[in-house]
């Protein structure tokens, strides 16, 4: 079981990244990861070694996210990115602006589209893996991705002129 714990510990950074994409707020993201880890540790005997531990944890985190209490959800919604701790390593002013733009655009998506995009574009899961992590058929994942990306394309594009002005 030491080995399983070690494997779970290795996944914490990725879980934090996924949680951040879902919640936007670093504190809420870490709360979500904490709940996920506690659950994973309790349930670790249920993890099948034939499957990917990472995918199993992603799946658990998403379930926790969907089922988390209203208090945490409210807090996540109330946090303003401008006053929240910066989840990202220091970067140039331009890069920071791009980051906020895409992060804001992501947060305007429905959660299920956000999760689909985060798992594929950010976490690098294949469509099959992402569908399994979200407990949905691959066709549904593709549909969510398509709609989410299109919407993201519209909202993210809106910031383009602003970017150019900054530059």
């Amino acid at each position: 079981m030491q080995e399983t714990k070690w494997l779970i510990a290795r996944e914490i950074p990725r879980l934090r990244r996924y949680a951040l994409a879902l919640t936007r707020d670093p504190v809420a993201a870490d709360d979500l990861v904490q709940d996920t880890l506690e659950r994973a540790i309790r349930k670790r005997h249920l993890w099948s070694r034939h499957g990917s531990l990472r995918a199993w944890l992603y799946k658990m985190l998403y379930h926790v996210f969907l089922n988390q209490g209203p208090r945490r959800k409210r807090r996540a919604n109330e946090v303003d990115l401008d006053v929240a701790p910066d989840p990202i390593a220091p970067a140039t002013a331009d890069a920071r602006l791009v980051r906020r733009d895409i992060v804001t655009a992501m947060q305007e998506l429905p959660a299920e589209q956000r999760a689909a995009i985060a798992l594929t574009a950010v976490e690098g899961l294949s469509y099959d893996e992402a569908a399994a992590a979200l407990d949905i058929p691959v066709g549904t994942l593709r549909s969510r991705l398509s709609r989410g990306r299109e919407r993201l394309r519209e909202t993210f594009d809106d910031f383009e002129p602003q970017l150019r002005q900054v530059k």
Partner: peptide
């Protein structure tokens, strides 16, 4: 942009 935006979480 997405990968850049969330890259910090891995390094933190």
């Amino acid at each position: 942009a997405l990968r850049t935006a969330y890259a910090g979480a891995l390094a933190a």
